[in-house]
Amino acid sequence: MELEVRHLRALCAIADAGSLHKAARQLGISQPSLTTQLRRIESSLGAPLFSRDRTGCLPTPLGRSVLNRARPLIADLAALVTETRAAASRAEGPALRVGSTASRALPGWLRRLRRRFPGTEVGLRVDVSAGALLRTVAEGRLDVAFVHEVEGFPLRVPPGLRERVLVAREPQFVSLARDHPAAARPVVDLAELAADHWMVDPSVDGEWDGLRRVLGAAGIDPPVLHGDYLTAASLVVLGEAVAPCQPTSGPRDDMAIRPLRGDPLAVRLLLYGRPGIALDALYADLADAYREAARQAAPYRAWLHGQGLSEPCLTGP
Rank of each mutant, 00 (worst) to 15 (best):
D253S: 14
L235M: 14
D209E: 15
R212A: 15
A217C: 07
Q26V: 12
S89E: 15
G99S: 05
A195C: 01
P159E: 15
C57K: 00
A256E: 08
P251W: 09
G99P: 05
T231E: 15
A79V: 11
Y283Q: 03
A88M: 12
I277M: 09
V66A: 04
P159L: 08
G273Q: 10
R258M: 03
Y290P: 00
P118T: 03
H305C: 08
G262V: 07
T101Y: 05
Y290R: 07
R9D: 13
A294R: 01
L34S: 02
I74Y: 09
I257N: 04
L110P: 01
P158C: 02
S249C: 09
Q37I: 08
T55G: 10
G108K: 08
G219T: 08
D280M: 02
G131R: 03
R164S: 07
L80P: 00
H305K: 14
A79C: 08
Q307M: 12
V147I: 10
L106A: 05
W208A: 15
A302L: 14
L134F: 05
P48M: 03
G239Y: 04
V237S: 11
L314Q: 04
P159K: 10
E139C: 01
D189C: 01
V126A: 12
L3T: 10
R125P: 05
D127Y: 04
W198P: 04
A47R: 15
M199G: 08
P154A: 11
A218C: 10
L270I: 12
G219M: 06
A17L: 09
R40I: 00
G28E: 04
S175H: 08
R141G: 13
P118C: 02
G99K: 08
L77I: 11
Y290A: 00
A183K: 01
R6T: 13
H7N: 09
R301W: 10
P186M: 07
S33W: 12
L260C: 03
A184F: 02
A91M: 10
R178H: 06
Q172C: 09
S203M: 00
R169F: 06
D209I: 03
T36F: 13
G262E: 07
D205L: 06
P118S: 09
P181A: 06
H21D: 13
D263I: 02
P247R: 02
G123H: 11
R64Y: 07
G123A: 12
V187M: 02
A297T: 06
L279C: 04
L134A: 05
A23R: 02
A17R: 10
R213P: 00
R178Q: 12
I14M: 11
L282I: 15
Q246E: 15
L80Y: 10
A130D: 03
P317C: 12
E42R: 09
A191M: 06
D205E: 11
R116E: 13
A132G: 03
P158D: 00
G216Q: 06
V150Q: 09
P59N: 05
L49R: 02
Q37D: 08
L38A: 05
L166K: 06
